[in-house]
Amino acid sequence: MPTRQAQLRTTGALLKKTKVFERYLLQRVVAPEDVRIIAIGAGSFGLYATEHPLPLIVSSVFPIGDAYVTLDRDTGEVVGGGYEPSYKIERKGPAQDPIPRTAFLDPTFAQITAVVWSRVSIGNMASAERPLTLVSGR
């Protein structure tokens, strides 16, 4: 599964769970001052969710695109690098609007304190590397 598809599934889950918390706030199941954490698992695409150089969830909720490296043409030495800004995740199809990659910069998600992300699932449970990632916008 390409990274873009995994990011779309992740942002879709985040939006769905955010709406649940909106309902909980209106129903007073949770108070505005409560910490509200959403858990998202990679599920069936856990084997394909990228973790390097950043966990997939980070590039799904912040405008972080592809990594790049700048080389000195004369020496071939690495002189810089970083990440390209990427504010949207493109979707295929003529009537498919891109999905914003700015959840923790967008007031729509202001009621969410953090996201716990795991790519561990059936099929890759032996993964000892970075079993959980906590991402907070606050």
Rank of each mutant, 00 (worst) to 15 (best):
E90M: 10
P107M: 07
W117V: 01
A128V: 06
E84S: 10
P131M: 07
G93D: 10
R91P: 04
K92L: 15
N124Y: 08
R119W: 05
G123W: 05
R130C: 10
Q111H: 13
A110P: 01
W117G: 00
A110D: 13
T133W: 02
V135S: 02
A126Q: 13
A114D: 02
S121L: 01
P131K: 07
E84G: 00
P85K: 13
P100Y: 06
T102E: 13
P131T: 04
V116Q: 13
R130M: 13
S121A: 15
P85M: 14
P85G: 07
P85E: 14
P85Q: 13
E90V: 09
T102W: 00
P107V: 09
L132A: 09
E84V: 07
G93F: 13
I122C: 04
V120E: 06
A114H: 01
I89M: 10
R91Q: 15
I89C: 09
I112W: 01
V135Y: 01
V135A: 04
N124W: 06
R119S: 15
T102S: 11
V120G: 02
Q96E: 13
T108I: 07
T113I: 04
R101V: 08
D106W: 01
A95M: 11
A95Q: 15
R91M: 12
Q96Y: 04
S86T: 05
R119D: 11
K88E: 14
V116C: 12
R101H: 05
P94N: 08
Q111G: 05
D97W: 14
F109E: 03
P98S: 14
E84T: 05
T108K: 14
R101A: 15
I112G: 00
E84N: 11
M125V: 09
T108Y: 15
D106K: 03
L132R: 09
P85I: 10
P98L: 08
R130T: 11
L105K: 06
A114F: 00
T113F: 02
Q111V: 08
P98T: 11
Q111A: 12
S86A: 08
M125L: 15
A128C: 08
V116K: 11
D106I: 00
L105F: 11
F104E: 03
P107C: 06
Q111Y: 04
E129D: 12
A110I: 06
I112F: 03
M125A: 15
G123I: 06
K88W: 14
P100E: 09
L132F: 15
L105I: 04
A110C: 06
E84K: 13
A95L: 12
A103V: 05
E84W: 10
G93L: 11
Q96L: 09
S121T: 07
W117E: 00
A110G: 05
Q111C: 14
P94Y: 13
G123L: 07
V115C: 05
P94M: 13
P107S: 08
Y87K: 09
P85C: 10
P107A: 06
V120Q: 15
W117Y: 15
I112M: 03
V135K: 02
Q96W: 04
N124I: 04
A114T: 01
P94D: 09
E129H: 14
G123A: 08
